[in-house]
Design a protein around this nucleic acid. Sequence first.
DNA 1: ATTTTGTTGCC
DNA 2: GGCAACAAA
Length: 567
Amino acid sequence: MPPLQRGALPPVVGFIDMDCFYVAVERARDPRLLGKPCAVVQYPTGQRGRPDLRPEDDRWRTGGPMGGIIAVSYEARARGVTRQMSGAEAKKVCPEVILVQVPTAFGKADLQIYKDAGDAVVDLLASRCDATEKRSVDEVAIDITGAAEHLLASRAAAELGAAASAATHLADSALSVDAAKVTRSSARQGHDKQQSRDTSELADGWEEVLRRAASDPVAWRLIAGAVVVKELRQQVESTLGFTCSGGVATNKVLAKLGCGLHKPNQQTLLLPHAAPVLLKDLPLDRLPGLGGDFGQAVKSRFGVQSAGELLQVPRPDVLKQFPQRGEWLLALAAGDDSAAEAVKDRQLVKSLSNGKTFFGEKRLRSLEEVDYWLGELTGELHRRYLQQVEKHQRTPSTLQVSLTLDQKEHLTRQQPIQLGSQGTPEQILQTAKACARRAGAVSGVISLGLSLSNMIPLEASSASLSKFFGRKSEGAASKEKGEKPQEKAKAKPKEANLLGACFARAADLLVHRLNQRPGLESCPASEFRPAKGSRSGRGCFGGAPAEHPAGDSERAGPGAQVEEAPL
DNA sequence: ATTTTGTTGCC
DNA sequence: GGCAACAAA
Ligand SMILES: Nc1ncnc2c1ncn2[C@H]1C[C@H](O)[C@@H](COP(=O)(O)OP(=O)(O)OP(=O)(O)O)O1
Ligand SMILES: [Mg+2]
Ligand SMILES: [Mg+2]
């Protein structure tokens, strides 16, 4: 990997998470919400033929059913409002709370305004980053090694130190370590440990850090990274009007962990020496991949609660209980770089999906009803598909239908679809119906979902290809957003697959080398199987397999699927 | 009684 | 390539 070869030094990784994001998007549209306790709700978007609520309509909810809360302002959090509450419950604990309903289109929630806002953040960040990875609608991981090194070379050390320390929490400060002790569920709600931002706390520890960093190149680059993140956050706020929190560390896991320690509108630097301090009492479920059944199994298997406790378990015991993932697990609990994937350069989503659930009485009882809702879902997805063609010159090649039937059975059916640049809703609907028929969707349908995936570039113009190669291999800020270079789609009946076929292999290798590193990485779910019937409160829409990562030889791999020993 | 997106294992 | 399961925001 020519451009970013940095010898043995680890990269400088930043992580950005927007503050109460959907609320922030609504506040940017309607400043009356600024400073007020408010929340965004999804009204149970049910019946056929109800008028849609467009983004520009008055969407404040005052009476009737209030829907479920999906985002909460910090003012409302302080008064006890939480996600997952119903609007009515929120009104009980906080009568002043303003509830804004998400727009609807095609008879269902329409999240487009939030997606657009999230994309704008990614675009802005990408201007200064070596790699920009969209992690969710409101999160971005960034490789800022280049920008940090540039600052180191162009600004005086004292100036950098002053700028970083004035704006950045240290992850091993007393306040940070306290913030790390709360479990995932309480951390998500926001708590006082995260919020106090007086300067005496910020100063805590910085003097010594700056002294020691003089002879520590890794630390110095990270400190410069904190300045980069500070500037990027400022730019996001002034350009887009959203505040966010930031984290800086040598890998994605730690950067994200740091990011979550102080919110809203704050940032945290997690230097290598702080990792053990922070992880010692960190509840295991705060680590990525351990927030679900697997994390619970790890906890109960060893009788541990924190990452520090897990590290006390004799290594052979861990490896015996979790042969495939034991090494990864221990590296993760230690905050080791080898447990985290490199920051990928992917600025766009890999799939477009939507879905709707039909509870109880609303269960779909006939083929006619199923087809009606497939039509509504198709309408929305087609609109989004056209947007991808226009804005990003790419088209999906797989359609997946997912549905839940009466007895909780969940099924998916997929098939290739050729939409090119001018696909029609009818084309999507016909394919969707075919999939639904194969799945046996006739009556007792509790949920329906559609997904378009396997995005491929439209138009194998030599321009788009050489752009891809040229920019990437020079390593300079590439504006490519991460589509698969192999397999070009025909924009029109013409344009065959010539260049695409020629370059597919080389492009694949190149992308792979830029995006992947060897090592432990990844956090799958083998070696742990949930109890038989234990699939109760989970989501309905199985996502679409977006694409194959063209797996590099040695993963923790399939082959030896090992059942965990019973308790 | 939510709606998305991404990953991995297995065939 | 197709499908199920899991994890996350
Ligand atoms: N379970 C969910 N269902 C639907 N939408 C969700 C869910 N979780 C999160 N979202 C949406 C709404 C959020 O504003 C947005 C970003 O999530 P997240 O970062 O976890 O919280 P947040 O941005 O609202 O607050 P915070 O300031 O704590 O980050 O994604
Ligand atoms: Mg957020
Ligand atoms: Mg988030």
